[in-house]
């Protein structure tokens, strides 16, 4: 079942990226009479590259900063900032990603930059929240033992807390990444290069073939990346000594 899903996703993604001509006959009925069937203003592979680049450029700093902030407020010295930071994370997530994107434009103009800023800002919240949940989920007896055997605070964090919190941290990065993949699509409305461009082109020229190409490709890539994180999380759970199988 899982195998079949992987094969199907890889086949569709590969086909759209590297052999679009094979799919032309299937898409032709959707294109307007006489109009182009395959998106021709850029190759889908270059757009996919640009799309993924937006996400990576945002997710790397999101992860570093979100994780660091969560670690800081979970230390005794940062405890004073804990209630507020949780409220902000909670309220911040009621902010729609599109709103963050739209408000980045007046600040940074058009292009990739406002998109990356929006993806970065929105990505912080799930990573922060999940890291915090992961760190707080370390059983009290385990955290106490780590101190009692004589670990330094740095050793407690690196050897005990982070490995145990890792599955939840990765879950947070997965949520952020999936949202970023989706918001990057909308980024093409502020002139960032992404796969959204294909869908927008289809909408403006009333070309359903374009919409299907762009939509199916973004969908497949998102699901592939989601599944990839799933493997990573299963591995981290195993490493964290969490019984897998009855979970998830």
């Amino acid at each position: 079942m899982t195998m079949l899903r992987w094969i199907l996703l890889l086949a569709i993604t590969g086909g759209l990226l590297f052999a679009p001509n094979l799919l032309e006959p299937m898409l032709r009925p959707l294109a307007p009479a006489g109009g182009p069937v395959l998106y021709n203003r850029a190759t889908l592979s270059s757009l996919t590259g640009a799309h993924l680049m937006l996400v990576v450029m945002a997710m790397v700093p999101s992860t570093i900063i979100g994780l660091t902030l969560a670690v800081l407020v979970s230390r005794p010295a940062g405890a004073e900032f804990l209630p507020l930071s949780r409220t902000i994370a909670n309220i911040g997530q009621t902010f729609p990603p599109v709103a963050v994107l739209a408000l980045s434009v007046p600040l940074l103009g058009f292009g990739s930059l406002p998109t990356i800023l929006a993806l970065f800002l929105y990505g912080l919240l799930p990573i922060f929240e999940n890291t915090l949940a992961g760190l707080r989920g370390v059983p009290g007896a385990v955290a106490l033992s780590a101190r009692a055997v004589g670990m330094t605070p740095g050793q407690v964090l690196a050897q005990v807390e982070l490995p145990i919190a890792m599955p939840l941290i990765l879950e947070g990065i997965r949520i952020s990444t999936v949202i970023a993949l989706s918001t990057a699509t909308i980024g093409s409305t502020v002139a960032a290069r992404s796969l959204g461009e294909v869908i927008i082109a289809g909408l403006t020229s009333n070309n359903l073939a374009f919409i299907v190409q762009g939509g199916v490709l973004t969908g497949c890539i998102a699901v592939l990346i989601y599944d990839l994180f799933g493997l990573l999380i299963a591995f981290a759970k195993h490493r964290a000594g969490i019984e897998t199988g009855d979970q998830l």
């Binding site: 993949l181 989706s182 699509t185 869908i199 762009g214 973004t218 969908g219």
Partner: peptide, 21 residues
């Protein structure tokens, strides 16, 4: 249902146009 949630909104909105049209 998880798979559906994963699909970017603009992609799902767009692809649904086809059967509705």
């Amino acid at each position: 249902l998880t798979l559906i949630q994963t699909i970017p909104s603009m992609a799902l909105f767009g692809v649904l146009i086809v059967p509705l049209a």
